[in-house]
Amino acid sequence: MKPSSEPIFWMLFGGGGMLSALIGPVLILVTGILVPFGLLLPQDTMSYDRMLAFAQHPLAKLAVLVVISLFMFHGCHRTLHSLHDLGVHTGTGAKVAFYGVATLATLLTAGLLLVIGF
């Protein structure tokens, strides 16, 4: 029996799970409810200029990349395993597809973060 490659994806999954549990609900509350409805925070909190300035800071870039990437790996891993639980046969192809999506999202985010400059 050869060692499973699962530890890599399980760590990414675990990291994403921890992060999403810690900040996921707060992110949804702030970006999805409070700011759009102007509750507690002014509606222009997330104006284009401000968000651009935010995303141009190196530390913010890192935070955005980590959040998007780990959330993607977490979601893809969970969905892949849930498909298996539902009796859908998930072979190497499905693995490549699901983790490929998460990898692509990571690379795309990194690329865009670089393109918008510092």
Partner: peptide, 11 residues
């Protein structure tokens, strides 16, 4: 370790 680390093990 071989049993534990395999796809058919804890994973």
């Amino acid at each position: 370790a071989e049993v534990i680390n395999a796809d058919a093990g804890v994973w």
